[in-house]
Design a protein around this nucleic acid. Structure first.
Lengths: 140, 140
DNA sequence: ATAGTTGCAAACGTTTTGCAATGGG
DNA sequence: CCCATTGCAAAACGTTTGCAACTAT
């Protein structure tokens, strides 16, 4: 019900990373906590500057790197483009990337995951993590 | 038995891409045909320069881009680092990575591929390419 | 002959870094 | 108070591009 929840989530990210809580970092963490997409550093910076216009590019990159290094953000490098970020505490999903627009859709397929486990098992392994990306174009 | 095979393979790559056969391109294609690893552009250039030291960076990038665009090279972008290349004339496969030893096994699952196409179709897309990596540990 | 290709160098987009000033614990 | 953090600007990095000279067909 209360907005405080979001603010707490942002601070929690920073604390979990062992980072001092500062105004720029709070704005950046807030952006990530609120994001429903997979923004790259430039987009994170632009959004954070709506809260605090004085934030520098360097701080955005440094904060993102620190959070990612501590495992609090997941990073995706779709093809050769800019690294995109998302908070890591959300349920697993895979990605479908529109190669023409760069749009990213999330999906989950229990069947695919089951088959992945079967493949792993056939090789004598169990899956710790996986990455599945579908590079697509709109069907004609 | 004969070395000519390699040279032909390099030329075949260029012809298949509809590119004129030139000395720099032949050297680059040769490097790719001979590669047993996944070199990035800089490595391809360095190796090609052993055959022809006058090759420019621009030509390396342009040739790699042309071959990749025609589907004759596969590209991998591990993390955010430089794009790596490999000739695409080997059958498609996915990767199972042993997170403890780093060993990489290749596998193919027609069923998974079929489900991938179904997922894409459900979103109104067709798959251009995909990447599937299973990070595993040996089953207890 | 002529369209495709080249090397060079400059530009590009993303990310990192050196530094002096600032500010959080 | 002290060290982490900041903004700035410049540099680093991988990659692309404009251009005039060259070359395969």
């Amino acid at each position: 019900m209360s907005d405080r929840v979001d603010s707490d989530e942002a601070d929690a990210l920073l604390k979990a990373a062992g980072l001092r809580i500062t105004k720029p970092r709070r704005a950046i963490a807030r952006v990530l906590a609120d994001a429903h997409d997979h923004p790259d550093a430039e987009q994170v910076l632009a959004r954070a500057r709506e809260h605090d216009p004085s934030i520098s590019q360097a701080t955005a990159y440094r904060t993102l790197a620190a959070l990612a290094e501590k495992g609090l953000l997941r990073t995706h490098t779709f093809d050769g483009s800019a690294t995109r970020f998302e908070v890591a505490n959300r349920p697993h999903h895979d990605h479908l990337i529109d190669v023409e627009t760069g749009e990213v859709r999330e999906f989950v397929s229990g069947e695919i995951e089951r088959l992945q486990r079967r493949v792993a098992k056939e090789h004598g392994y169990e899956i710790i993590a996986h990455r599945l990306e579908l590079y697509c174009r709109k069907a004609g």
